[in-house]
């Protein structure tokens, strides 16, 4: 087992009276693909939003560590600092691209902070200093690299909104990868993809893990994808982690089966009575 990249400790998130995530602890390991599964409303996306700073958890700690030993307490950071400094990138359940901008521009926005520094926070860039042109060329090269990886290089100058759905999903991952993340969080990356696209996604995610060394945390309903590529699976139900382990172990866990297939009301009543 590798060292942990993210440690979630006793995380609780409440919305008014609703407890979306309840005292959850989870370890995401470096250079592994960790899948987060569970029925709708189990709190998976809420957990994502806590990790990426869009929600501030009610209680709990989120410790992210880089391989050089730097560590970050994510629950104390603004979302853009989490992306910029802690290097956690994410995609969204309902794809969020800059639809009116071209693919290339989408990937350049992802490199905003690098480019911003290179443009001397705009002043040097405004007057055309050569340093900025070099930085922009490097950024375009990286964008082209990732466009090649997702097979969209030919459409670099088209608006992102014109892409078919599957391609938009790939582009969103490419955009997240342009931020050079340590941890990549994917919210249902296979949703709406056909079988072929889904298989390509598997290959791509494995390649990101093996070639780029990025750790991946993903939410997914497509069990085919989850079982095939995950190194580790955590199962959530009603905000609580009910199982955690290797794919084979999780697959046969009775609690997981009950959560997914549902248990008849009488059985619950019986179970409660026997307590």
């Amino acid at each position: 087992m590798t060292a942990p990249v993210l440690m979630v400790e006793h995380l609780t998130m409440r919305f008014g009276g609703l407890v979306a995530v309840n005292d959850l602890s989870l370890v995401v390991r470096r250079k592994e693909i960790t899948a987060l599964i569970g029925p709708n409303g189990a709190g998976k996306t809420t957990l994502f939003n806590c990790i990426t700073g869009f929600y501030k958890p009610t209680v709990g700690r989120l410790l992210l560590s880089h391989s050089d030993g730097k560590s970050f307490l994510l629950e104390r950071m603004m979302e853009f600092r989490i992306a910029r400094d802690a290097r956690v990138a994410r995609t969204f359940q309902n794809v969020r691209l800059f639809a009116g901008m071209t693919l290339l521009e989408n990937l350049l926005v992802a490199q905003h902070n690098t480019l911003m520094a290179a443009s001397g926070y705009t002043m040097l860039g405004l007057f055309g200093f050569p340093g900025y042109a070099r930085a922009q060329r490097r950024a375009v090269d990286r964008a082209r690299y990732w466009l090649d990886r997702v097979g969209l290089a030919e459409r670099a100058d088209d608006p992102a909104g014109a892409l078919p759905y599957g391609a938009q999903r790939r582009l969103e991952i490419a955009r997240a990868m342009c931020t050079e993340p340590v941890l990549l969080c994917l919210d249902e990356p296979a949703a709406g993809l056909n079988n072929r696209e889904s298989a390509e996604l598997n290959t791509f995610l494995r390649a990101i893990r093996d070639e780029n060394g990025t750790s991946i945390l993903l939410i997914e309903h497509d069990m085919g994808v989850v079982m095939e590529i995950s190194d580790h699976i955590a199962v959530l139900d009603y905000g609580i982690m009910i199982a955690d382990g290797a794919p084979a172990a999780v697959r046969n866990d009775p609690k997981v089966i009950a959560a997914y297939l549902g248990v008849a009301d009488e059985e619950i009543a019986q179970a409660e009575a026997s307590l």
């Binding site: 600092r81 992306a83 800059f98 521009e105 926005v109 905003h112 911003m116 705009t122 900025y132 955009r175």
Partner: peptide, 22 residues
């Protein structure tokens, strides 16, 4: 320049901007 692209990105989707470290 990056600032201008960030403005336009902001117009298109603010949440995505924040997720990208802007």
């Amino acid at each position: 320049l990056p600032i201008g692209r960030a403005w336009e990105a902001l117009r298109e989707d603010e949440i995505a901007c924040r997720a990208l470290g802007v």
